[in-house]
Design a binder for these strands. Structure first.
Length: 411
DNA sequence: TCTGGGGTCCTTTTCCTT
DNA sequence: TCTGAAGGAAAAGGACCC
């Protein structure tokens, strides 16, 4: 009897199909097939409250009672759009006002992250019941290591992928697409091959036929900028990229990026599936209803600034973290932005302390142009309570004294 | 004309110390 | 004391992703 072959590395990438829109259609099946865009900021009223008041259940609200894009004013953008809406040329990241011109009859649903998170937790729990080595990649995506899962090797992973797909659908009514390959890089590409509700299996030997003909942009990590630069050098496909010399890539894109491009184009990627990760930073930011001026709208800005600091502090405390790099982010009316950071000598999760440090950072930024966005970030995080809490105020004061506020204490 | 929010990671610049 | 090199850390910017 031959000894059983050692398992081959099989990594799956699972991507929920049109996740936000699909979750919305579970709640509002009457919208199926209609142009719907999801975006904008307003909070949706709570379903449970609505039903407690004896009002019409959401799934029975007539289509005519949903708000449409027509006449929309405001700064929101589209987070996602149903296929029916996309046919009018609207799509993700487009301003809602522009979308209103293209498709005024489209129904507008505000995003409801609480609901998406709920379904996200549900489908992920189903996966880890079956295959415990799972890496979170945001609300609607995961990597799963099939290598040592019973059945994970059968038909290159197809059997297990099918099982997971079915379990998710039976529980939630949602569909997903899965790619299974020797590593995360190829699995991520593969999950796009058979969308929606499909399974694609990629083996190492499929590189030339299945991967090399694809556009470089299909590599996760090559965005518009890198793609543009590649094109300037006559490189359009992954195969053309793979044909380039390693040294040329390093000379052209730098040591790290060049070596990575070379490996990626040859389908090489040895990153493990990480089952847990620690956050590096937490932030809150907001785009104003109208552009604000640092002097003329000082009171309003100050209020927003304080609120952002309180929100970040609350996020940190709720999740049990503290950090020592406090930063602010500004975006001006011309959409250009700046950031300013300040590193304390200790960690904090205290709203007032964050507010003071962020205020000092803000003083170092130009405030002569009107602002459209303000953000507050806390980085260099660690778990709360790992370090002794020193005299926080003294440290802050020393920084404050060093910078010695000019006049007026704007913030 | 329009362009959200919350992240990670990488590169370059700047500043400090030796 | 000045100057420059070198290296590290912090700051700043930007690309990218969902």
């Amino acid at each position: 009897m031959p000894s059983p072959a050692s398992p081959v590395r099989r990594i799956a990438h699972l991507d929920m199909d049109a996740f936000y829109a699909s979750v919305e259609l579970l709640r509002y099946p009457q919208l199926k097939g209609l142009p719907v865009v999801i975006g904008g900021g307003r909070r949706r009223e709570d379903d449970a409250l609505r039903e407690a008041r004896g009002e019409t259940p959401l799934h029975q609200i007539p289509v005519s009672e949903f708000p449409v894009l027509s006449g929309y004013t405001g700064r929101g953008v589209i987070t996602t759009a149903t296929y029916a809406a996309r046919q009018f040329g609207v799509g993700s990241a487009m301003g809602l006002m522009k979308a209103a011109k293209l498709c005024p009859q489209a129904i507008l649903l505000p995003v409801d992250f609480a609901q998406y998170r709920h379904y996200s937790a549900r489908f992920k729990a189903i996966i880890t019941d079956i295959a415990p080595v799972m890496e979170n990649r945001g609300v609607d995506e995961v990597y799963i290591d099939f290598t040592d899962v019973p059945g994970g090797q059968r038909e290159g992973g197809r059997v297990l992928a099918r099982l997971i797909q079915k379990a998710i659908f039976d529980d939630t009514g949602l569909t997903c697409s899965v790619g299974v390959a020797p590593n995360k890089l190829l699995a991520k590409m593969a999950s796009e091959f058979k969308k929606p509700n499909g399974i694609a299996i990629v083996h190492e030997s499929d590189l030339e036929t299945m991967v090399w003909p694809l556009a470089c942009r299909k590599i996760n990590g090559i965005g518009p900028k890198a793609d543009e630069k590649l094109k300037r050098h006559g490189i359009e496909t992954i195969g053309q990229l793979a044909a380039r010399d390693l040294q040329w890539l390093i000379d052209t894109f730098g040591q790290r990026t060049g070596a990575w491009l070379h490996a990626a184009s040859h389908g090489q990627d040895d990153r493990p599936v990480e089952t847990e990760s620690e956050p590096v930073s937490m932030s809150r930011e907001t785009t104003f209803e109208r552009d604000l001026h640092a002097v003329r709208d000082r009171a309003e800005l100050g209020t927003i600034f304080t609120r952002l600091c309180e929100q970040v502090a609350d996020d940190l405390q709720r999740k049990g973290y503290e950090g020592k790099t406090i930063g602010i982010k500004l975006r001006y009316d011309d959409f250009k932005g700046v950031t300013r950071d300040l590193t304390l000598d200790h960690c904090t999760a205290d709203a007032q302390e964050i507010r003071r440090a962020a205020g000092l950072a803000l003083k170092r930024a130009p405030l002569d142009k009107r602002l459209r966005l303000l953000g507050v970030r806390v980085g260099s995080l660690q778990k709360q309570g790992l370090a002794p809490a020193p005299s926080a105020q003294a440290a802050i004061n020393s920084v404050a004294n060093a910078l010695q506020a000019e006049t007026g204490q704007l913030f």
